[in-house]
Nucleic acid binder design. Structure first.
Lengths: 291, 291
DNA sequence: CTTGACTCTCCCGTAACGGTAAACTTTAGG
DNA sequence: CCTAAAGTTTACCGTTACGGGAGAGTCAAG
């Protein structure tokens, strides 16, 4: 019979931990003195404690460990738990590895540029939306204002304003240097509407499983700065573009004050299967070009 | 100006998170109504929020993120933080990979044996101890009782009992099948003592950086069972033996009741440089032999 | 003016313990 | 036998980064 301090020294765990495991009934002392409340442990409890510690090291939660310990769980059930745990750990390893690459990209950014400029590019998923739009091919992206006005006129009076969501511009062109832009501009909808013969398209705006997004505050003339930044980020972090990008207007734009526009640029991306340069942070010196 | 709900939808984060970041002064609203307490956010705050989210994704704590954000931290300081973070993540990846291998070993154990029998072998480090001992070569490990008696007589009266720690037996032989055992038996000491010319050795019992330990309750005749289990565990988890093993007596042994002995067996181990079979859990079918 | 949607603050809960305080018990030494 | 030191008890708070919910107040549209 050991008092808690001796037992903790023998088992190399803290007294606090033993009391905690007693509290949650994971490992109760062999005997508790009724008067003093002193806990007394026997050496025969060491195997149980060690088993707990081993399972803990495998990453099982104390709740799971309790299930393993209390009834003598069948080996196959334990096996199932371990399989579950294994897939969790596999995912965790992959997630941490991804994180590691992102960190290295950021360090390389600082080394090359003197500062961290990709800091506002973020990756997330984007759900599908119901979308009511106009599609045109124009010769200048600044022409967008005209399109927006046209869209407003087409929509005005036909759709209740409470059904309208955000203004979205989809860039269907994949060549960024081309002289012609295939642009689709419309509103997301919160409910379906009848589409009269107005030239308006009613469709689903595709969801993006993974999107690199960046918020731009300023006129469309500055878009290429953000575009380049996103491109560099996507390139460096082992992804590639996976479709046409689009711009979400987070504020209803005032057509005559383009410098106040608040636009979220969204680029669908996917993991590259081949990762070209797997080197250290400092070795990523070649200038990274977009597309 | 957006109310918190709109802003949360735009930024794709929860209201709760925005309130929390306000509370810890990480991202305060552009304006707070004095009467109602309503928070109003401006679109111009999105870049800051996104930067926060990016840093969070890199795994920085909110405290670190706050330091990055509040003063405009110099890029080199940020770089240092990222380097620190990188080494943390590298360690995390390695730790999770180790864990993954342990899990796979456990699954393979169940598949081969029908149950998890290595469950009470645990890995930890063992500190150095001051050690006062006798060393003999005997022809049978069961001869240990005689040695213990001899040790008691040598120590009795010369060392104050408060200075005595645990009884330890060191097996210096590396060949487990040999007929002769080179055994050293002694006590750990809590303070240094004068060693009279008694044949006793005063030395440091080497620490073990990594040890596989297992508690055995029972007579020394059962030691080989535990030995085999530890060996199989060590072999399967990518380690190898790295020196002579020893037995810590967790209870002062009663010489005439060997069946009550509570002994912790400690084997120093190190990572194998070459990992032979890197296969899946189910493929580990060859019987694993000790040494 | 009402009603429904929105927002506020405040408190509790998470997992797995560590730290500390105030009171009590045991043990060793004289 | 007495005292002092060491050990132990319960109880409460803190950690991280939020999520959930209660009860009360606020805003906007019809």
């Amino acid at each position: 019979m050991f008092r808690i301090g001796d037992f903790s020294r023998i088992a190399r765990v803290s007294c606090r931990l033993l009391r905690y495991y007693d509290e949650i009934s994971l490992l109760s002392p062999h005997y508790v003195d009724g008067d003093s409340g002193y806990r007394y442990y026997s050496a025969a409890q060491l195997p149980r404690l060690n088993r707990i510690l081993v399972l803990r090291e495998l990453g099982l939660s104390l709740g799971q460990i309790a299930r393993v310990m209390e009834d003598n769980l069948s080996p196959s059930e334990l096996r199932a738990m371990l399989l579950l745990r294994r897939s969790d750990v596999e995912r965790a390893v992959e997630a941490e590895s991804d994180r590691l690459r992102l960190i290295e990209v950021s360090i390389a950014q600082i080394d090359n540029n003197g500062e961290l400029s990709t800091d506002d590019v973020i990756m997330r998923s984007e759900p599908a939306h119901l979308f009511l739009s106009l599609r045109r091919t124009v010769d200048s992206f600044a022409h967008a204002r005209v399109l927006i006005r046209e869209l407003h006129e087409a929509v005005h009076g036909r759709v209740h304003s409470s059904a309208l969501g955000s203004l979205v511009a989809v860039a269907h062109a994949t060549e960024f240097e081309a002289d012609l832009f295939d642009v689709e501009i419309g509103f997301t909808l919160t409910e379906t509407v009848p589409v009269a013969p107005t030239g308006l398209i009613l469709r689903e705006l595709e969801p993006m499983h993974t999107a690199a997004v960046c918020v731009r505050v300023g006129p469309p003339e500055h878009a290429h700065l953000v575009t380049g930044r996103i491109g560099a980020f996507v390139e460096a972090s082992g992804y590639e573009l996976a479709g046409s990008n689009r711009e979400f207007f987070l504020q209803r734009p005032r057509l005559d004050h383009t410098e106040d526009w608040v636009v979220e640029m969204q680029f669908p991306i996917r993991k590259r299967r081949v990762i070209p340069a797997q080197g250290q942070a400092g070795t990523l010196t070649a200038p990274v070009q977009f597309e």
